[in-house]
Design a protein around this nucleic acid. Structure first.
Lengths: 227, 227
DNA sequence: CCTACCGATCGGTAGG
DNA sequence: CCTACCGATCGGTAGG
């Protein structure tokens, strides 16, 4: 099983497998996980600038040196964490709209989609991530663009495609399906997303209120675009 | 023309009128105006934290001491400037909806309102102010609340009132006029406000595109709520 | 005497 | 892994 020579002059900076193929050092994994959790908490709470590397180290109960060893520098740590959450959000976006164009009862399917979408987006950690990315869009423009394209953008693209099909079939009247997708999203999510940005500490709507908000948005959408 | 005694033992710290009623020292006014303009530019561009008092002083071509003499400290300077713009925005909000409930041609009046609203809100300085307040909502929660209540909140309140009247008169079907006002706002403004937060450096829609966005939003609103 | 303003520098804290 | 410390920069204030 060809162990690599310890004196190898070109070791990968972070080997995917350690010597004897034992996998990465479990201590490294523990440290990285502790740092990631602590940094996520603090970044989401206070933003990039107001979170100190010392604070992250203290909360994660690791040394500051371990953070730099595992993540390079503060910017890389931030970027790596945010990109991880962004790809999670992108996967959700793909699943959300699946099957819409084939639904037997379109109004019911849209109401369910609206409720599911708003419930997901109105979770504190999702709202805080969105807010964090907006706060740091000046410092990390590429990150903001990647998030926008992967999360809301992917939902918008999937809705656009579904609405185009439904329009062709006469189930909706949406000659501009892209615009219809935007209208659907802002009708359902608009006020919840907006309020949180201005009052991130305020109480979120209750689940009942969220369903009501989503239903009202979908009802207005169906009145405007319904077959 | 009663000159005040120069040896007066209780001079006001900053007299509204100087000796001989000549008015405030014009040098003071010039300095304050220069500081306000420079600070506004920089705060809107980089946010609170990333703007240094030294930078403001350099851009305004005054000494740092003059900033502290005129505005107390950095937080007060920021608050004073933002509150000034907030009250300006509030006055616009009041005028925007005036006369809507009495319009002879409601669809036309709503289309004009939508265009005017979006054109105003989509000005770079308005978008930047909104973004700045969101960025600093963690540090200045009272400021964010005041802005939210004075600007979007006042438009929403005025629209709600107008829609309630129009519903009573049968010109609209809006049994929940508050919700209708939210839907109107997000249909017209949603995508423009949202995109700017994630890409503050990107090009804004052209005036033609803005009118199209507004028209599409108002058309959807009328299809959903129209008499 | 006052107000406005200057050059110089303070203590404290950030990322690394 | 920790303490100590660096070069840089911040908001705020000193004397004149």
């Amino acid at each position: 099983m060809g162990d690599s020579d310890v004196s190898d002059r070109h070791p990968p900076l972070r080997a995917p497998l350690g010597p004897r193929d034992r996998g990465p050092d479990p201590r490294t994994l523990r440290t990285r996980a502790a740092v990631a959790e602590a940094a996520t908490t603090l970044f989401l709470q206070r933003g990039y600038q107001d979170t100190g590397v010392d604070e992250i180290a203290a909360l994660a109960k690791v040394s500051k040196r371990s953070i730099y060893n595992n993540y390079g520098d503060k910017e890389s740590l931030f970027t790596e964490l945010v990109l991880g959450f962004t790809s999670t959000a992108g996967e959700f976006a793909d699943r959300l709209v699946t099957g819409l164009a084939e639904a037997a009862d379109l109004p019911q399917a849209l109401h369910e989609l609206g409720r599911r979408h708003l419930r997901t987006v109105a979770r504190p950690e999702v709202l805080r991530l969105r807010r964090l990315i907006i706060l740091e869009a000046g410092r990390f423009p590429a990150l903001a663009e990647e998030y926008y394209r992967s999360a809301p953008g992917r939902v918008m693209a999937a809705l656009t495609e579904a609405f185009a099909l439904l329009h062709a079939r006469g189930a909706l009247t949406a000659p501009n399906p892209r615009r219809a997708a935007e209208h659907f999203s802002y009708l359902v999510l608009g006020s919840t997303l907006d309020s949180f940005l201005f009052a991130p500490e305020a109480d979120l709507p209750t689940p009942t209120e969220l369903d009501r908000l989503a239903d009202d948005g979908v009802t207005a959408f169906l009145a405007a675009y319904g077959g």
